[in-house]
């Protein structure tokens, strides 16, 4: 059996001041009046859901917003990541690594919270694929049916 060491990686350690700040005052939160692509992702494990809308001009992210419901980790991650993306080439999204999101959060993410932290990254990545016509958005968004 793998020896599991009881270390305090979860719990209050992850709820640092800046996480709580981004959670309670998320940046780029809301809806865009006009957008070029919209995508919703759902994390069935915890019920987190996020929708991201992107306005693109000359392959540059002109505006980007997210809305939905989520835990502090998923909301803070979205808030931090989107702040970075505005004004950058849409191409850039493809090169964002998971580690980059963890770095933005700068807390140690326990295995059970990884999905929370990466929900926004998955959503923007898929949004770019849809924008480029690589995949067709599923019609039935009710993944639980």
């Amino acid at each position: 059996m793998t020896e599991i060491i009881d270390r305090n990686y979860a719990g209050e350690g992850i709820y640092r001041e800046n996480i709580i700040d981004h959670y309670t005052h998320p940046r780029n939160f809301g809806k865009l009046e006009k957008f070029d692509v919209q995508h919703r992702e759902f994390n069935p494990l915890c019920g987190d859901e996020t929708t991201i809308e992107i306005k693109v001009e000359n392959n540059i992210i002109k505006d980007i917003k997210f809305h939905g419901k989520g835990c502090a980790i998923s909301m803070a991650a979205a808030s931090m990541l989107l702040s970075e993306l505005k004004g950058k080439p849409i191409e850039n999204i493809k090169n964002i690594s998971k580690e980059h999101v963890f770095d933005l959060l700068s807390i140690s993410i326990s295995p059970v919270r990884v999905k929370c932290a990466l929900l926004c990254l998955e959503t923007v990545r898929t949004a770019v694929k849809i924008y480029e016509g690589g995949i067709v958005e599923k019609v039935d968004k009710k993944v639980y049916m």
Binding site: A10, C46, A72, I73, R113
Partner: peptide, 8 residues
């Protein structure tokens, strides 16, 4: 969010 409550 229940996840945050459970974590703490």
């Amino acid at each position: 969010h229940p996840h945050d409550v459970a974590s703490i």
